[in-house]
């Protein structure tokens, strides 16, 4: 098991919340470079990304290809801004490089691609691809005797895609107990609210009917996220050779979370933010994290990640 399970819950939660704060700072900084972008999604998913990278995944920052690493597959290519921030937080991508986001010749393109970025396991963007690939990766790792976990991050919009459900059935059929899907339910798609684009509810029932273990949490509540991951780990520890039901965490999140200016703005898939608003966003983020008394100039520091968390073979 990962060593973090033994860490006191309050400390774990604080560490993940701090990571989420830094991920949001990075995302806002990258958004400012572009002047617009998928900042709303990155802010909404920051707690999930922080829980995954600061608490859950085993990886080696200096060796992103390490065979024993847990695999994190980002289906939603446009969330790359969030993942780059998380990869910087994880020490896989240098923080200084984040300012190249979306620029010519950058390793950090607007839509995430595995061939561009260290630590990016797949090319997302064409939605509904992540879970099918995750199924094959989990099957392949198990066939090779590698106990690494596979985590697929997907969006509620991807539940429109038939391939997601092909893969959901396949994962349960093949008893991929080391596969976890994390669904970001921000209730927003390119053409508007999910409920009006294509009704996906009851989401939990659908996954359960496909044979998955389902938990639904507030995806912006770090304690709830960690609890969900812990429950999965506890159940998976009883699986023989990793064979058992795959798990899904349905995460209800808020677009723009952590920055009231954006939380209250009319929700848009591609959010426009005026030039003068970026500093306000950073200030509001810091005020929310630190409390109003400590609100000040936006910080750019990041935690130096020197430790590698490795998983003892299960």
């Amino acid at each position: 098991m990962t060593s973090n399970v033994e860490t006191a819950p309050a400390e774990r939660q604080a560490a993940v919340e701090a990571a989420a704060y830094r991920i949001r700072q990075h995302a806002l900084a990258m958004g400012e470079v572009q002047g617009q972008g998928y900042v709303g999604q990155a802010l909404g998913a920051a707690d999930i990304l922080a829980a995954v990278y600061a608490d859950q995944l085993a990886f080696r920052p200096e060796d992103p290809e390490w065979d024993g690493r847990d695999r994190f597959l980002l289906s939603t290519g446009h969330y790359a801004i969030g993942l780059y921030a998380a990869l910087a937080e994880a020490g896989i991508v240098p923080v200084e490089e984040l300012e190249t986001y979306g620029s010519d010749d950058s390793r950090l393109p607007m839509s995430g691609m595995s061939t561009y970025t260290p630590g990016m396991e797949i090319s997302g963007g064409s939605l509904g691809h992540g879970l099918p690939i995750a199924v094959g990766l989990a099957l392949g790792l198990r066939a090779r005797g590698n106990p690494a976990r596979v985590v697929n991050f997907l969006s509620d919009g991807e539940l429109d895609e038939g391939s997601t459900w092909e893969a959901a059935m396949g994962a349960a059929h093949h008893r991929l107990g080391r596969l976890t899907a994390v669904v970001d339910i921000n209730a927003l798609q390119a053409d508007g609210p999910t409920a009006g684009v294509l009704r996906t509810e009851p989401v939990a029932d659908k996954w359960a009917a496909c044979g998955w273990r389902v938990q639904r949490v507030d995806g912006n509540d770090v304690a709830a996220l960690l609890g969900a991951f812990d429950a999965i780990a506890a159940e998976a520890s009883t699986y023989d050779g990793g064979r058992g039901a795959p798990a899904v965490i349905l995460c209800d999140t808020k677009v723009g979370r952590g920055v009231p200016l954006l939380e209250e703005r009319e929700k848009a898939h591609f959010m426009r933010i005026e030039e003068h608003e970026w500093a306000v966003c950073q200030d509001q983020l810091t005020a929310g994290y630190r409390g109003p008394a400590e609100a000040g100039p936006a910080e750019t520091q990041t935690r130096a990640k020197t430790q590698t968390r490795e998983k003892v073979a299960q």
Binding site: V135, G136, A138, G140, S163, G170
Partner: peptide, 23 residues
């Protein structure tokens, strides 16, 4: 041998994942 069911998108997505795992 892996039976993926009548699901061709899964078939080729999963084949990609298996290749990524070194198979």
């Amino acid at each position: 041998f892996f039976q993926m069911g009548m699901a061709e998108q899964l078939l080729f997505g999963a084949a990609a994942g298996m290749a990524q795992a070194g198979l």
